[in-house]
Each structure stands twice: as C-alpha cells, then as structure tokens.
Design a protein around this nucleic acid. Structure first.
Lengths: 169, 169
DNA sequence: AATAACTTTCAATATTTATTGAAAGTATGA
DNA sequence: TCATACTTTCAATAAATATTGAAAGTTATT
C-alpha cells in the first residue's frame, strides 16, 4: 500500500467512525487530515484534499477549533490562515471526552438526580420500579463520571498500566 | 413532579442521548420505555405511548431484539406479541459495548494494523509522521479494546471498586 | 377453507442534517 | 482610499435518515 492510499483510508475511516458517534463526517475527516499532516494546512488545502466547498471547510474548521483540537497558526509573509491539529492522541481523547461529558453526561446526571425526587405519595409497583431504574442508571452514570474525571487528570501510561493490572489477575 | 411526567422526561432524555451517539431516537425511546416498565409491552402499547406508526414501532423493536436488549414473551391466552426489556443496567451497558465494539472498534483495529505495513521504500518526513500517528492511535485503540474486554468479564461492583482505587491515591 | 387477529415489509414521504456557493464582511498594503 | 486577498455567513439545496401507512404475509380459530 502506498502512503497516499493509506492516508485516504485513514481519513475515510475516521470520518465513518465520527458519524457513527454523532460527529459530522467532514469534521472528523478534517481532523484526521490534520492529525497526519506535519505542516499546517490552509482552508484551500482542505477543500482540495476532501473535495468540499469553502463554506463547509470553514464551518468545520471552526467547530474543530471550538473543540480545541485544532489551532490557527500564522505563517510569516502569508496572508491566509493556516491550521494545525493536536497530535497527541491521549490529549485528543481526553479533550473529546471533556466536551462530550459537558454536553451529554452532565445534563443526564442532573436530570437523573431530579427524577429521584418524584412525587411518591402513592407508591405503586410501577413507581417503585421507576425509582429503582433511575437509581441504577444514576449510579452507573456517576461511576462513568468519576472514571472520566480520573482520566482527565491521568497520565496515559500510568492509567493504562493501572487498568491492565486490574484485569491481570 | 408526577410519575407520568418523570417517565416522559426519562424517555425523552434517553432518546436524545441515543441520537447523540448514533442510535435511532425512537429505538432509544422504546428501550427507555421498556426499561421502566414492569409489565411486558405490546406493539400497540408502544405506538400509543410514543405516538408512532406500527411500522416504525415494529422495526425498532426488532432492532432492539437484534441488540439483545429486548425479548419477546408470550402471554397465556393472548395472541399478540409482548416484549420485555433487560432491566439490569450493567448488562445493558455491556451489551451495547459488545455490539458497538464488534461493529466499530474491531474494523478500526484491523485497518490500523494494516496501515502499519505501508510501502516505506522512501521514508519521507510525512511518511514517518503518518506511521507514528497510526501507531499511537493503534496503541490507544488496543488499550480501549482490552478495557472493554475486561469489562465484559467483570462484575459491576468489583469493577468500580477497582477503578475507584486507582484514582483514590 | 374461510375469516379474524395479528405482524412484517417497503415504496412513498417527511424530517433532519450537511453542504454549497455567492454575497457580505474584514484586514492588508499600495 | 481603493483594490486585493482573504474569511465568514446563511438561505437555498442536496443528501442522509427516519417514519408512515397500506398491502402482503402469517398464524390461529371457527
């Protein structure tokens, strides 16, 4: 396999993965492109490589900057904007986790703790079961939350060593 | 808050969460409904509760059965099909992880190991960097794979205790 | 064998989400 | 100040995805 083909496959796969996890395919592809690129890329570079419009490129680059996975850089003597992607895979994973936690896990946690306080004057079976399910889901969600919080603070090799040890026995 | 409202909120939230993670909203809502329901539900029950068509209900129930999150049950003397959802939240989480691993992580792992063997007769900087990135992503993906495999075998409380201990120090 | 009670299928349609491209906006420098 | 080189916006459009509903299929009952 040639480099060019390999790169294309990587970008394609990243796009497919993204869209299966609620992330715009183009955004994921741009991200892949920036991960594997040594040099900063301009909007035009991305438009060319992915055959997409200026508007599309622009919007998704901005979204990637919002996610703090991509930064703008200035090239001496050049007028146009260039962009570089974060290359540290662990940092990327943590950053994605951070953003999705804030957007999705935190609101669910909030709702679940609210749902614990529903009106229980009459304790029907349905009512009791609902309480139990909400509690169970809440417990799991809290544990996932703790795990993610732990990951944020963890150094990669340390974390995986510890995880490996858990299952080693 | 009343039970009925609480239930609706739970179902809504589950649907929203699902669609942010690449799962059909209706499928997630049906799943939520079945999680909190003590009794088996018929297709009609689901149609009524979610105000959806028969075809839609049928398709998504089948999908949930494919995911092994819902089972068909027979009610004595009744002709129509009834369905029950898995109630064990840990089992649900593991099952979802299992299916998504097979569909998404495994193919990515396969691709990444293939991409390691690209033609390297000429070792450009780009080429070397690509190799490094593929390697880094592969390493992370392998670790995630090991973690998931570990979770499959783990008992819930044991797993969270161990995780908690990692971060306790 | 005919009818009734139910489930499944799938082409048509609706809804949601992503993309385009041209116009408006902004900064640079002659 | 004007022209140029660029970026941003967003209404229109396209593409992807989900939903409907009626017809066809299946199974149980008389």
């Amino acid at each position: 396999m040639q480099y060019k083909e390999a790169k294309q496959q990587f970008v394609q796969a990243w796009g497919a993965l993204g869209s299966q996890w609620g992330i715009n395919k183009t955004m994921a592809q741009i991200h892949a492109l920036m991960m594997v690129s040594t040099d900063p890329l301009s909007t035009e570079d991305i438009m060319d490589e992915l055959s997409i419009s200026r508007g599309n490129a622009n919007m998704n680059i901005r979204e990637l900057m919002d996610w703090a996975l991509v930064n703008k850089v200035f090239k001496a003597g050049e007028r146009r904007d260039y962009f570089v992607g974060e290359k540290d895979v662990w940092k990327i994973a943590k950053q994605v986790a951070k953003i999705r936690k804030t957007r999705e896990l935190d609101p669910i946690l909030k709702l679940l703790s609210e749902l614990k306080h529903i009106d229980t004057f009459v304790k029907t079976e349905d009512n009791k079961h609902f309480q139990k399910m909400v509690n169970d889901v809440h417990k799991l969600a809290l544990n996932v939350d703790r795990l993610i919080e732990g990951i944020f603070k963890a150094e990669e090799s340390w974390f995986w060593e510890k995880i490996l040890k858990i299952f080693a026995k």
